[in-house]
């Protein structure tokens, strides 16, 4: 066990998987000498050469589509889309090609593609460099979605993503790149998809949060605990597949659920989780399921406005107290 940053953990995952499997290669904008906009791929060019660390022109649909073709023909590409907002450019590639081809071509060839991208706000990058868009892709059959919040999850889940035979959308978070935590080496670091992580245990309410919101919720849970409210806090870690069983089990115990989401409220991930909980455990609920999400507005650039938009630990504490008192 070593304590490293989320960025270093991601880089270790790439290094280890590229060393293990010669068919793994990375491609994206400014990922070679520059090392990627957030430094994740720094050093890979020296280690693996320009054949396997491909700097691309600014052609997201073109190179993502190329990665799909490469994935269908025996390699394991890992694409970097610099900001998740740019995923709009590659939606056709992901939705109409990567996600469907295995099924619609009669299961002839897997599409082992990973698309890594940096999502979320918190840095005042403005409306097209700060969005949280995982909900879009939860609606698409055929794509797995990973939303790691710790270095261990980042490393373990990226390694698993690269070994997975399906398209995986791997959503990193700008506010987490510097987060530190312990990681393991090699295969010991691997983590399965579809396993929620229980962060804190408690009886008063169930809280569900992922990515940056998971870190904020963890801080909130500590504060709540100090105030006498104990929280069962879960990070689903992957949204597709979504591990509902422990969440349902928890709500049976607590009778209250708060889902915290950085993305916009309407038709968000929390709506899906709330609905699934309601379908399964409604008779155990002591209060309506509560969603804490961003309002339905574009992410503004001003720090004051952005702060007002995205839920933080204080907003989570407040929502939790209201829910427990209801």
């Amino acid at each position: 066990m070593r304590e490293i940053s989320y960025t270093d953990a991601l880089r270790e995952a790439l290094r280890e998987e590229m060393a293990r499997d010669a068919t793994v290669f990375v491609l994206g904008e400014d990922i070679a000498e520059y090392g990627g906009a957030f430094g994740v791929t720094r050093g890979l060019l020296d280690a693996y050469g320009s054949q396997r660390v491909l700097n691309t022109p600014i052609s997201e649909p073109g190179f993502t589509g190329a990665a799909i073709g490469a994935a269908l023909t025996g390699t394991r590409p890992v694409v970097e889309i610099m900001f998740m907002d740019f995923i709009g450019l590659v939606t056709d590639q992901l939705v109409n090609q990567a996600a469907k081809l295995h099924y619609v071509l009669g299961e002839q060839a897997p599409c082992p593609l990973v698309v890594r991208t940096a999502g979320g706000g918190g840095r005042c990058y403005g409306p097209t460099h700060s969005q949280t868009l995982e909900a879009w892709f939860m609606h698409v059959p055929g794509i797995k979605i990973v939303v790691p919040s710790t270095p261990a999850d980042a490393k373990g889940l990226l390694k698993t993503a690269i070994r997975d035979d399906n398209p995986v959308l791997f959503i990193e978070h700008k506010m987490l790149y510097s987060r530190r935590g312990n990681v393991l080496e090699g295969d010991a670091a691997l983590l399965p998809f579809g396993r929620a992580r229980c962060i804190t245990e408690g009886d008063d309410l169930t809280m569900i949060a992922w990515s940056w919101m998971s870190a904020e919720a963890e801080a909130a849970a500590k504060e709540l605990e100090a105030g006498g409210v104990s929280v069962d806090l879960f990070d689903p870690r992957t949204l597709a597949p979504l591990d509902m069983a422990p969440l349902e089990e928890s709500v049976r115990k607590t009778g209250r659920a708060l889902i915290v989401e950085e993305g916009c409220r309407t038709a968000g991930v929390s709506a899906e989780i709330a609905c699934r909980l309601f379908e399964c455990v409604h008779e155990y609920l002591d209060a309506p399921i509560r969603r804490l999400a961003s309002p339905d507005v574009p992410v503004p650039a001003s720090p004051v406005l952005e702060e007002a938009m995205i839920p933080d630990r204080n907003a989570i504490v407040q929502a939790a107290i209201e829910l427990v008192q209801s």
Partner: peptide, 21 residues
């Protein structure tokens, strides 16, 4: 492909994979 031009990037990828291998 059901998307006009949908296979053009796939051809890039197939050629890339041939080159890498």
């Amino acid at each position: 492909n059901g998307i006009t031009g949908g296979s053009i990037p796939v051809a890039t990828g197939a050629a890339l994979s041939a080159k890498l291998q």
